[in-house]
Design a protein around this nucleic acid. Structure first.
Lengths: 157, 157
DNA sequence: TGCAATTCGATTGTGCACAACTGAATGGCC
DNA sequence: GGCCATTCAGTTGTGCACAATCGAATTGCA
């Protein structure tokens, strides 16, 4: 392999990982603008989406839905509680677990959030089929990357 | 529009934005493992890629390549300087500007980084054509989202 | 030439991601 | 019943993203 072909690889690599990173941050920027009215950040919005769909959940389950651990969720949930959108209460059955319950105010916010998806979809300029196709590719990518990270950890010896 | 169809929209929306977010973080996790040997984080690696390709650059140009501002780059570059990989020096022509120059050690790191792209590509399990197709979609998405964010700011009055 | 607007970087503050660790609670097992 | 590994949430520490602001340097223009 010549030096120049290795350089090509470096550039190609940069493009795929960088494109994903840039798209993620661009999405974040659009959400930041749209969610400002609701007083939510993008990760907070994701938490509320899960709670709106599933109702009260322990932190653990919430983290499984969102692929986030308690180190990220604990302070985030405290901020949502401070904003009056959720309550956190120790489970009666298992004192280790904390149930996250949307308040009336949190549930009411759902009405104001209904127009968000349409505005986001409009911002992408992609038709639904294209979005679904892209989403499927991304999910396959995530699955492959997670598997690779897991095997890399075990195979690193 | 019935409540259930609005709920469907909420779920659809969650899937596309969430898939992108998850893929970005999954990529980050794989890079974290692979770059650990080099002592770099993923954003630091991106900075070094740009420096390897373009040589010495002012912070401003670096930020344009990476879509990052000085608030992110300043502390990051200080850490790279602390690691001995770059030097930061005021431009002679324009005292406002700071030139970021890779050190000998920083340039030498390129050799050890050559195998990174291959390992990343292998981790995705995607063939090059598929990666390029996905990258093109993501770039179009980023462009549309940036444009939408820009118009949203001006149209928000 | 002198002043105003702009450019550039650094800094500050908020929030998220994640690794590592702590400590309480639980449940299995002898 | 008592011990021990496991399961949880929380905390700490590091690093990144970004908005807002500052101060110094530069540029444009009257």
């Amino acid at each position: 392999m010549t030096p120049s072909s290795a350089d090509d690889w470096l550039r190609l690599d940069q493009q795929i990982c960088f494109s994903l990173n840039a798209a993620s941050r661009a999405f974040n920027g659009v959400y930041r603008v749209i969610l400002k009215d609701l007083g939510l950040t993008y990760p907070q919005y994701l938490v509320m989406l899960v709670l709106w769909e599933h109702g009260t959940l322990p932190v653990k389950k919430l983290g499984e839905h969102l692929r986030l651990d308690s180190g990220t969720l604990s302070p985030l949930l405290k901020r949502l509680e401070g904003a009056g959108l959720v309550r956190r209460e120790r489970s009666a059955h298992d004192e280790r677990s904390v149930e996250v319950r949307p308040t009336e105010e949190g549930l009411a916010l759902r009405e104001r959030a209904r127009e968000v998806p349409r505005r986001i979809a409009a911002a992408t300029g992609f038709d639904p089929a294209r979005i679904q196709s892209l989403r499927a590719d991304l999910d396959r990518l995530t699955e492959a990357l997670d598997a690779a990270a897991a095997t890399a950890v075990t195979a690193e010896a």
